[in-house]
Design a binder for these strands. Structure first.
Lengths: 198, 198
DNA sequence: CCTACCGATCGGTAGG
DNA sequence: CCTACCGATCGGTAGG
């Protein structure tokens, strides 16, 4: 997990509480006074821990991005697996990272656009890179003959990402289904579809 | 299309320009002064056309919701079709409604949470109803034996909605692929999966 | 559609 | 971590 977020410092606590607030109300609608109140301190006191409101958003977004990258790096090492197996592992990894901190994941997803430049650009470059690496797995599957050659790879990867990204909005981490099973089911649905196998 | 949005009144123009602004910067970060500037008038003059900032958001969200409902009503009438055919028609309809106004669709999707009560509650009830009607189509498909009985229906419908909802973020309406083809491909991918048919 | 303006709230700083 | 405070900006109104 990102260094700051995983620590138990006061700063980390400020960021975790901020994440809850940002998720609930959105970044722009969350005031530093709201945040201070949740922490039981005065707004001005926040600035002993963080440099600015945006620093909080920056840490939340980039710490999550880092975790997603680490997870995908692991998967890409396993070149002994077939494309669909790697895709499955990638999906499971993504969901596991999200499940470790669904609040930060929701902020990562919905609020990153409020980063100012040049951070926004850096963030979007990381995201494009991540998506392209998933797209590569799909292309590998087509090249192998494991996936249909007629599939629209862009549509496939966008559909995959949409479902992954939307998950923090409805997935309940205390539910019966654990992240790994969820990842497997999602991968299976995407790869095999809903239809009865003949 | 919703009455206000489709008209060419000055009010409709204000709302359309607001939609672009809300999409770009988010509802909260968009000021009435930003909006006025885009229209070439003073901020105070906006209030000759609209009652409040929230009225704009309300109209955008509920006009889109109305259009989605009309589309789904049409599909549900076709009980001669199989579940997967109805699902496909539902998906195509949803995408066609979105494609008619991708800007309003993006606002509908990302900014509805800034509606105040009781409008937010009303909106969420409409959305739940809409989702449940798609879920019903999937359940019908399972009951018929057309879809696998092991599928997680909640996961399937959330995956479907995630992809539909995310589309305004990447779909280019001027692209080579028209909404109907896109809907067909998405439905096919969901129903049949990526895997080569044996 | 404009000028003139209001009270509330914003992120953040100085100085302890 | 607090008190005291700043300049900027917010949505919106009065009155034409």
């Amino acid at each position: 997990m990102g260094e700051v977020l995983s620590s138990s410092s006061r700063k980390a606590q400020v960021i975790r509480v901020a994440a809850e607030l940002f998720r609930e109300k959105g970044y722009v609608a969350s005031s530093m006074r709201d945040l201070a109140q949740k922490l039981g301190i005065e707004a001005a006191s926040l600035y002993s821990h963080i440099k600015s409101k945006e620093e909080i958003l920056h840490i939340l977004c980039f710490d999550m991005a880092e975790d997603f990258m680490v997870s995908l790096n692991q998967v890409e090492k396993q070149q002994n697996l077939t494309a669909s197996q790697r895709l499955q592992q990638g999906i499971i990894g993504h969901i596991q990272v999200m499940a470790r901190d669904l609040t930060a994941s929701a902020v990562f997803m919905n609020e990153h656009r409020h980063l100012s430049q040049p951070f926004l650009r850096d963030f979007l470059l990381l995201r494009i890179n991540y998506i392209n690496r998933f797209k590569k797995m799909i292309e590998d599957g087509v090249a192998d003959g494991e996936f249909k050659k007629e599939i629209d790879k862009k549509l496939a990867v966008m559909t995959l990402f949409s479902s992954l990204n939307w998950m923090p909005q409805w997935y309940n981490p205390d539910s019966v289904i654990d992240p790994e099973s969820l990842g497997k089911q999602l991968a299976d649905m995407l790869v095999n579809g809903l239809k009865q196998n003949r």
